[in-house]
Design a protein around this nucleic acid. Structure first.
Lengths: 349, 349
DNA sequence: TGTTAGCACTCAGCGTTGTGGAGTGCTAAT
DNA sequence: ATTAGCACTCCACAACGCTGAGTGCTAACA
């Protein structure tokens, strides 16, 4: 649709402007372009074209008699049409992932850190969530007179536990029975598949201990709408200071706050997790981002899938003039490394 | 020792200087003091005394013809001798804690947040660690052919789990036996009390499945030296920008980075956890802090004890001219609220 | 002897000014 | 359609000078 309003020369000029701006961060003037590009045009000609491009909304002028910088629309055009695909920088990362498969927590924190130091932007990695995950195993045990421990394992081998207070002690036999009932009823179900019918049936079978079942199911549903519990690992938030356009007006510090309040980040990221099975990479430019604080930033996210249904997100937040190619490359590589890591045979000898 | 080199008047003047500086953050001049203090002295006299105080090392001059600001030694004298003890600001916090006892994670994050918004400094709260904690309950279960799940509960109701891969399937009976052996042998022991003898005995009883026992014990010891896994919740790191003496030279951004690398914070805090049973509040001024990044800050920490042996730390990091009274008050209150929370009867009706 | 008033000196902070460079838009020539 | 040239705009930055706050020192005073 849009791309027809740009002829070949305009496209080239726009491309040159953006590339240049991405590098320098300074408004770029007509003279610069007239030298930079292969099509040999004088600065005056460029000026005319730039005036057109500005009218079309692809670039803007911070003030009269300054060069031009890309608008959101300009950036969008760039990532959609102009950007080259590359495949480099694969090595380093791949190794890193393979080596540290033991602890998911550390793995992800590491991932965030490397990504940040690689790109010089702020990064975040959300821990896998239980999206559409099936039950594998549930176990209740008495730890104490008034307390029982519920442990829940899902298909992706994610483990969750909760201590449930009960009114009185429960004998071993009841415990065993409850376990059997729970396991046989719930096994193989996804969280979403538990409905009132299931619950009623469970409670019936549990007899006098239906209250415990209730508690257990509560824990389950807690797991479901666990938005607020999503673990988010961040790194390189101070990178915001490296970009004057962000660090100037205290925006950087707002952004850092946002990164500390991991909840918000989580929300940014969950919508991708749910909506799509698209394995693609999402780019939000400026106001396209759902988080207001980031209206002067670009956000690039990717979904990874550790194991069957166990999904998380990687994200990078930087200035609009971020190096999109590099960022997307990095994301792709990391995503590939993480994908299916749980299903792969362990690296141990 | 030191305090004898200061007569009464010098003490009063030093006190006035520091209090004033804490409020304003500006170097304080002789004239200000001559009006501020009750002892009616002219600015000239004050100047003489200030010259003395400077020679003694309690105050310094940022540059000629500027007022004086407290040195580290001055601050130290202040917190040790001059500071008034108060007991206010108890209300708000107490309530907060009582209401949200469900999830420790959230509780602590909340604690950090409130503390930060209360004090306007950066705060951190470390999650409880298993220091000297006793076993209460251990359970192995088969989740899969090649995998068993080990769940460990400690005295403080902290739950830890790990999935252990095994070579072949294990029948239910063996499982049961292993559980019994583990529980009966380990019950009531602290992590430190497991020695080679215990291990040997366990393995012997386990027979052919001693390898599993080995794995379990590995998990246990992992829990022990879990320094690197200490959870740290931070909040208000951007508060550093509120204090020019920190935000100027990019120190703030270094500090924020330090707060992102939670490991370092953990190390700052663990020494208190281990060394002392002192329930006191620690104050590090400037270079007294073990973390180099914080040489221009003061750090105040307190140890809380959620339950028997389940300890964590609360800490506040701010400029040297922080409001020590307020900070220590807040820490005390929060500490009191957290202390013994696990042992208290639940607030539910 | 301790305290005070007065004076000369220092220095950071701030607003003012002016200059240079980069960039634009427009017009006229090619 | 493209280009060269010119006048204009505006930001960035350095230089300047002023002001206010503060000191140290000396001389007078109780």
């Amino acid at each position: 649709m849009d791309e027809f309003e740009l002829d070949d020369r305009k496209t080239k000029i726009l491309n040159a402007i953006i590339r240049n701006y991405l590098k320098t961060g300074e408004p770029v003037g007509s003279r610069t372009i007239s030298k930079y590009t292969d099509l040999n045009l004088s600065s005056a000609t460029i000026r005319n074209e730039m005036a057109d491009l500005e009218e079309l909304g692809y670039i803007v002028q911070p003030h009269t008699s300054a060069g031009r910088i890309p608008s959101d629309k300009g950036y969008r055009f760039y990532v959609d049409h102009l950007m080259a695909e590359k495949d480099r920088e694969v090595d380093e990362m791949k190794q890193f992932v393979i080596e540290h498969t033991e602890k998911v927590d550390h793995l992800l924190q590491q991932a965030a850190r490397i990504l940040a130091s690689n790109t010089n932007y702020a990064t975040m990695v959300t821990a896998p969530s239980y999206q559409g995950n099936k039950f594998k195993f549930i176990q209740l045990s008495c730890v104490d007179e008034g307390q029982i421990l519920a442990v829940i394992v899902t298909d992706g081998n994610l483990v969750k536990n909760k201590i449930i207070p009960v009114s009185g002690p429960i004998d071993n036999e009841t415990m065993l029975k409850l376990n059997i009932v729970l396991n046989s009823t719930l096994n193989g179900l996804t969280l979403a598949e538990i409905n009132l019918g299931t619950i009623a049936r469970l409670k019936e079978q549990a007899g006098i201990h239906s209250d415990i079942i209730g508690e257990v199911l509560d824990t389950l549903s807690e797991m479901m709408l666990q938005e607020d519990d999503i673990r988010v690992y961040t790194s390189g938030t101070t990178n915001f200071f490296k970009y004057p356009e962000l660090s100037d007006t205290g925006k950087a510090s707002e952004l850092i706050s946002t990164f500390e309040e991991k909840q918000q980040l989580a929300s940014l990221v969950t919508e991708n997790l749910l909506d799509e099975n698209s394995t693609g990479i999402q780019v939000y430019i400026g106001n396209e981002s759902p988080i207001q604080t980031m209206k002067d930033c670009s956000v690039v996210t990717a979904v990874y899938e550790l194991g069957e249904g166990v999904r998380g997100t990687i994200g990078i937040v930087g200035p609009k003039r971020m190096d999109y190619e590099k960022v997307m490359d990095n994301l792709k590589v990391l995503k590939n490394s993480l994908d299916g890591i749980l299903n792969k045979p362990k690296g141990k000898t």
